[in-house]
């Protein structure tokens, strides 16, 4: 609640932001990943399984 936490020594403004932090700071990239993962592994793979069920003799 207080500003005390912001009194840390300032970071070097030129320090490069690591790639993983950049990913975590990018909501739309995360949104993309969060939709693609289950769509591919759960939905598409699952629907392919159902379509390939053979017909009973």
């Amino acid at each position: 609640m207080s500003d005390a936490e912001h009194s840390n020594p300032p970071d070097d403004e030129n320090e490069r932001i690591p790639a993983m932090q950049q990913l975590l700071d990018n909501p739309f990239l995360l949104l993309f990943l969060g939709v693609v993962m289950p769509t591919v592994f759960y939905l598409i793979w699952g629907i392919m399984e159902i379509i390939s069920i053979p017909i009973a003799k």
């Binding site: 969060g34 993962m37 289950p38 759960y42 399984e49 159902i50």
Partner: peptide, 26 residues
């Protein structure tokens, strides 16, 4: 974000016709 949604498969574990590979992974 990446993996939680795969668990929708919890409801399809004793369903006919869907392979165990899909079931185990998801």
């Amino acid at each position: 974000i990446l993996f939680l949604q795969l668990a929708s498969a919890h409801h399809l574990l004793v369903e006919p016709g869907i392979s165990s590979s899909w079931k185990i992974f998801n």
